[in-house]
Computed example of a mutant assay.
Amino acid sequence: MKSILVFLASGVEILEVSPFIDVFGWNSVVGDKGNPIKLETASFGKDIRCTWSLGLKTEIDLSVDEIDIDRYDALVIPGGFGMAGFFKDGKNPKIQDIIQKFYKKNKIIVGICTGAILLGEASVLQNKKATTYFLDNERYFSQLKKFGAIPIKGTIVRDENIFTTANPESALRMAFILLEILTDKKNCDLVKENMGYKIKKKREN
């Protein structure tokens, strides 16, 4: 069984979390039953507060639980707001170590919006093309150079197995991209259609 670890820092933005929960939840119901994908959430403490004060309970408490990296195929880090304390958890040596281990094992790593900053803090963006939130006077985007990254003003940027994105809107698209990578295009289109998203059909000549 394939598995995804989703790290939720305090102050995470729920719109960057829910697409992954929904897409892979729908996949378990209407997708390829022969290739189930398990999604697990982790945080420091099992109760966290999101950017807009919504409370979430996670399955793994990183302050006491250890992570077996080999159990997972991908790591997803949704972004959040600094005013809600998002970046504090990203400086924790334990999550930085987890990110580095995923990187060293060449597993998929996804940083949504300001989640890319946590990847930079863990020193995995050096000489990598990357993006992050580039509105608001580019104050987050400008940090990419500090991490040794190659800043790209794109909505979704891939460099080998590292994906970074620029805003909350990109989270849903990235969830479908990840689903397609872990399964295939046919399965991804099936999930999209069942969720109400129209699939463009190629015209026959």
Rank of each mutant, 00 (worst) to 15 (best):
2 K>Q: 14
2 K>M: 08
3 S>I: 00
7 F>R: 04
8 L>F: 09
9 A>H: 03
10 S>V: 07
10 S>T: 12
14 I>L: 12
15 L>T: 15
16 E>H: 10
23 V>N: 12
25 G>W: 11
25 G>L: 09
28 S>M: 05
34 G>V: 01
40 E>A: 06
40 E>R: 05
43 S>M: 03
46 K>W: 10
46 K>H: 06
48 I>C: 05
51 T>N: 12
61 D>G: 07
64 V>G: 04
65 D>N: 13
68 D>S: 14
69 I>T: 12
70 D>V: 07
70 D>H: 11
72 Y>F: 15
78 P>H: 08
80 G>K: 02
80 G>T: 12
81 F>Y: 13
82 G>Y: 04
83 M>I: 14
85 G>H: 03
85 G>S: 04
87 F>R: 06
88 K>V: 12
93 P>S: 11
93 P>G: 15
93 P>H: 13
96 Q>G: 15
96 Q>P: 12
97 D>F: 08
97 D>R: 15
98 I>K: 05
98 I>H: 02
105 K>I: 01
105 K>E: 14
109 I>D: 14
111 G>T: 13
111 G>V: 09
112 I>V: 15
113 C>A: 08
118 L>Y: 08
119 L>G: 10
120 G>P: 09
121 E>T: 07
121 E>H: 07
122 A>W: 04
127 N>S: 14
128 K>I: 00
135 L>I: 03
136 D>V: 09
138 E>N: 14
139 R>K: 14
140 Y>T: 03
140 Y>P: 01
142 S>D: 15
142 S>G: 03
150 I>S: 07
151 P>K: 02
152 I>P: 00
154 G>V: 02
155 T>M: 07
155 T>V: 09
155 T>P: 00
156 I>Q: 02
158 R>A: 10
160 E>V: 02
161 N>T: 07
164 T>K: 07
165 T>P: 00
166 A>V: 06
166 A>L: 03
170 S>R: 11
171 A>I: 06
181 I>T: 15
183 T>W: 00
183 T>M: 01
184 D>L: 03
186 K>F: 10
188 C>E: 15
189 D>P: 00
193 E>K: 10
196 G>Q: 06
197 Y>K: 03
199 I>C: 05
201 K>P: 00
203 R>Y: 11
